[in-house]
Amino acid sequence: MQPNDPILKLRDVQVHFPVKTGVFKRVTGHVRAVDGVDLDVRRGEVLGLVGESGCGKTTLGKAILQLVRATQGTVTYSGEDGETELTSLDDAGLFRFRKRLQIVFQDPHSSLNPAFTIFGSLEDPLRHYGVKTREERRKIVGDLLEAVNMRRESMDRYPHEFSGGQRQRIGIARALSIEPELIVCDEAVSALDVSIQAQVLQLLMALKREKNLTYVFITHDLSVTEYLCDRIAVMYLGKIVELCDAEDLYANTLHPYSEALLSAIPVADLDKKSRRIVLQGDVPSPVNPPSGCPFHPRCRYAVDRCKTEVPELRRFKSAKGEHMAACHLIDQPLAE
């Protein structure tokens, strides 16, 4: 088990939700929330998942953790005990892996029970995973709160007594409580004011170094991902359209969708003003995605071929590790 070895391998992962209509709830179609994703998450990295809302980031994050089950494809975990295909396990089989894979949501309010003290919420997973005495649990929860820069005494207070930034830190403390190897952070800082966001980002990075964590960092904020992540995967309609080194995504953008997305981000630097590429219309429905390249109705470079042929994710040359993109018009892919 080396750093950089994949901790998780996703192969052709699909999550399709049935669309039911009418009184008889007949299945009339499927939301292709995640539609064929191949991806390795490397041990110790921060992998960013970006894209417009509805592109499937949360669903992919949940599919990684087996919180939603893939309708097709495999997710394989590798650790000290070798490789395990998580997608073929039932709930009982998953139990010992759940501990290693955790998630922090955008709104910690929805995940902290308002009727419980912070200790009440945080002791639960500990008890679940075998910390028997209350004494011990109180000590661990206290240590966790200190690890996220909060006072131990906070454990006897209720969620509403804390600010948004503090609640987010409590959410992180809870994810850390059973010493996971990988944490999916789903828009974990998106709802916070910028000055507080910086506090939480710095905390996440310090914890990562200290505890050798791997993060899958889901966000719609590309400025944050470029700063924080090692690699970034750009998603569009359930598919990865570009995957590369975080700095390379900006410095050496390959995919037309990534280009448009990056150009739309308001940059707080008057000297870096770029021309925004205004995409027409909204993202098409994932129930009936466009034929060929899913981006073709909004792509300013689209040619005839894009309407019929689905572009594969291909590998391109880059000074910064591998650079993958799915577009017909990019030249010179590396031979497989």
């Binding site: 600010s163 910086a198 506090q199 710095q202 590309l222 470029e226 940059v267 870096k272």
Partner: peptide, 24 residues
């Protein structure tokens, strides 16, 4: 100044230093 220093700016890469504003 603190506000401008606390946000990562797209295009400045990983080496930029962001500084949190302490407290609330």
């Amino acid at each position: 100044r603190a506000l401008l220093d606390s946000i990562p700016v797209l295009g400045r890469g990983k080496d930029q230093e962001i500084k949190a504003i302490p407290g609330q």
